[in-house]
């Protein structure tokens, strides 16, 4: 990205990294890539009710050269696939992709000749967002997870070296950035619970247990 990348590994680089990532995550500019029904939900997320402007994202850049987040919203047909790739290639680094909806993530309900079974066959995807179509709130959740991921990105070759060093020394955060469900992330206690569960390798179990605790007929421990 420039002179920042040439900084030697150390505290200066980590501070610059944090600053640069914070700037990136706070001002995602989406590329308009609405294809089908999910595009309407994306537009609704940009509308006044579920306001994406709260996170600086109400503006969707028509030109991919000025965008850094491509939300592939909708089913990608065989005819459209080269266009998706071309738009992705035209986006400058650093760029991210959210595949919104099941059709973009995996082909969805259209398991047939005409639809590409998952846009990850064409472009690398950072966040998969299921739903048919996902509610605007789900899209916002995906964007928030994307922000977490961006916050943890290394800056330049020195940054990547530092990341490798951290990995080798075993200092990586227990929960990968963007991997904690939002309902756990909001509360310190639950966050600690989840982190512990990931350490033990039983986060699915934790989810199931907590869900069961909420069911009225199972509250007494099941009958």
């Amino acid at each position: 990205m420039g002179i920042e990348e040439k900084l030697p590994a150390g505290i200066l680089l980590t501070s610059v990294e944090k600053l640069s990532n914070w700037a990136r995550k706070s001002s995602f500019w989406g590329a308009t890539f609405g294809l089908a029904c999910c595009a309407i939900e994306m537009m609704a997320a940009g509308g006044p009710h579920y306001d994406l402007g709260r996170w600086g994202m109400e503006v969707f850049r028509a030109s991919p050269r000025q965008a850094d987040l491509m939300i592939v919203a909708g089913r990608v047909s065989q005819k459209m696939a080269p266009v998706v790739r071309q738009i992705y290639d035209q986006m400058p680094e650093p760029r991210s992709v959210i595949s919104m909806g099941v059709c973009a993530s995996s082909g969805g309900m259209f398991n047939n000749y005409a639809i590409v079974q998952g846009v990850d066959h064409i472009v690398p995807v950072d966040i998969y967002l299921p739903g048919c179509p996902p509610r605007p709130e789900m899209l916002i959740d995906a964007i928030l997870k994307m922000r977490e991921k961006v916050m943890a990105t290394p800056l330049g070759p020195n940054g990547r070296k530092m990341l490798e060093a951290r990995k080798a020394a075993g200092q990586m955060p227990i929960v990968a950035p963007g991997a904690m469900p939002s309902s756990y992330r909001v509360d310190k206690v639950r966050r600690a619970e989840w982190t512990q569960a990931v350490k033990d390798g039983r986060e699915e179990q934790l989810r199931i247990e907590n869900w069961m605790k909420l069911q009225p007929h199972l509250r007494e421990g099941g009958k």
């Binding site: 294809l35 089908a36 909708g74 089913r75 047909s77 065989q78 005819k79 459209m80 266009v83 309900m109 259209f110 047939n112 000749y113 005409a114 639809i115």
Partner: peptide
């Protein structure tokens, strides 16, 4: 047109 052809009728 045809960039959103989904094959609904065949499905």
């Amino acid at each position: 047109i045809g960039y959103l052809h989904t094959g609904i009728e065949k499905n």
